[in-house]
C-alpha cells in the first residue's frame, strides 16, 4: 500500500515506514536510546530527501521523548533545574545549527554536512562504546573487579558562575552545562537526532551527575530542543512531514515496547557492545557512500523550495 507524503513529495510504501519505525523503536526500547541517529540515515537510504529526514525525525523524537520521560518523572528522576539550564544552551545551539544548515543548503553542501556529521559522531561514539564495553566484557571473563571509574569533572568545579543542582547532587559552574546543551542543540538541528548519545556520557563524565537522574533529565531537555528544531525547520526549510512523522511514531511506539522486554534479557555490557556495533555499521555505510565512486557525477536540484 503506497502513501503520498505531502512534504517529502514522494509516494512510499506504508509498511516500509511502519517497519522502519518498529525496527528502530525496538532498538531504542532495548538500548534506551532515542534512535534518531539510526532513523535519519535509514530514511535517507529509503529515498527521503535528507533535509526532510532531519526535520521530520526531530518531530518524531519529540513524541518518543515525551513517552519516555513520563516514567522517569513519576519516579522523581528528572532534575528540572539542570534540564532548564541545558535547554537554554540547547535552544541557542539549535538556532545556530539551523543557521549553518540553511547556509550550506544554499551552497548545495547540506547533504555533505549531514553525512560528515554522522560519520564523525557515530565513529567516535561507536568506537568509545565498543572499547568500553569490550573491556568490561573481557574483565568479567577474567573475573577482575572493575576499577572505580575516576571522575573527570574537575573542569565543572573550577569554572566560575557556580550553581547548585540539588537533584543531581552537584554544585558546579553553568558554563559547561550551557556548552554541552549548545553542542547537542546544534547537532539536533543538523543531524535530526535528540543527541542522547552525546548528552548522557557528557552528563556522567564531564558534569559528574548522579546516574539515577541522567536519563530522565536528558529526555526532558531533548523534548524541548527537538521541539525547537521542529519549529525552526518548519519555518526555515519547510521540511517537516507530519504524515511521515506520525507513521514512524505509530511503528516506533509498538517496537519500543517489545524492545524494552528484549533488553531485559541481555546484560548491560552486551547491550552496549551490540549498540556500538550497530552505530559503527551505520557510520561505515555513510562513510563508504561518501568515498565510493558515485553512479552519477552530477547533483541536480530544482529550486522550488529554496
Amino acid at each position: 500500500m503506497q502513501i503520498y507524503l505531502p512534504i517529502a513529495e514522494l509516494s512510499i510504501n506504508v509498511f516500509l515506514i511502519l517497519g522502519l519505525g518498529a525496527g528502530v523503536g525496538f532498538l531504542s526500547g532495548m538500548f534506551g536510546v532515542g534512535g534518531g541517529f539510526l532513523m535519519t540515515p535509514l530514511l535517507i537510504f529509503s529515498g527521503v530527501p535528507p533535509a526532510v529526514a532531519v526535520g521530520t525525525e526531530a518531530n518524531q523524537i519529540v513524541a518518543s521523548s515525551v513517552s519516555g520521560v513520563l516514567a522517569h518523572w513519576k519516579r522523581g528522576n528528572v532534575d528540572f533545574k539542570m534540564g532548564f539550564m541545558l535547554l537554554n544552551g540547547g535552544v541557542l545551539g539549535s538556532v545556530f545549527g539551523m543557521f549553518v544548515f540553511k547556509y550550506l543548503r544554499t551552497l548545495g553542501q547540506v547533504d555533505l554536512l549531514i553525512s560528515l556529521s554522522y560519520v564523525l559522531f557515530l565513529g567516535v561514539v561507536g568506537s568509545l562504546m565498543l572499547w568500553e564495553s569490550g573491556q568490561a566484557l573481557w574483565r568479567k571473563k577474567q573475573g577482575v573487579e572493575p576499577k572505580r571509574g575516576r571522575r573527570h569533572h574537575d573542569l565543572a568545579h573550577r569554572l566560575p558562575l557556580k550553581m547548585r543542582f540539588r537533584k543531581s547532587r552537584l554544585y558546579i559552574s553553568v558554563i559547561p552545562v550551557l556548552g554541552i546543551g549548545f553542542l547537542v542543540g546544534t547537532l539536533a538541528a543538523i543531524m535530526g537526532v535528540g543527541g542522547g548519545f552525546i548528552m548522557v556520557p557528557a552528563m556522567i563524565y564531564i558534569l559528574g551527575m548522579a546516574t539515577s537522574v541522567v536519563i530522565g533529565t536528558s529526555l526532558f531537555q531533548i523534548i524541548f530542543v527537538t521541539a525547537s528544531v521542529t519549529i525552526l525547520h518548519a519555518t526555515n526549510t519547510q521540511t517537516v512531514d507530519i504524515v511521515l512523522a506520525l507513521l514512524l511514531l505509530a511503528g516506533g511506539v509498538i517496537g519500543a515496547q517489545f524492545g524494552a522486554r528484549a533488553g531485559l534479557k541481555l546484560k548491560g555490557e552486551q547491550l552496549r557492545a551490540l549498540l556500538a556495533l550497530i552505530v559503527l555499521a551505520v557510520c561505515v555505510k555513510l562513510g563508504y557512500d561518501l568515498v565510493a565512486t558515485p553512479d552519477s557525477f552530477y547533483t541536480v536540484s530544482a529550486l522550488v523550495h529554496l
Binding site: 519529540v62 515525551v66 513517552s67 518548519a234
Partner: peptide
C-alpha cells in the same frame, strides 16, 4: 499550511507529537 503558516504548522506538529507520545505511554 506548511508553506503559508509555517510557524503554526511547526507548532501544531510539535503539539501532535507531544499528545501522541503521552497517549502511547
Amino acid at each position: 499550511l506548511a508553506q503559508d503558516y509555517s510557524f503554526f504548522y511547526g507548532l501544531g506538529s510539535v503539539i501532535i507529537a507531544m499528545l501522541a507520545g503521552w497517549l502511547a505511554s
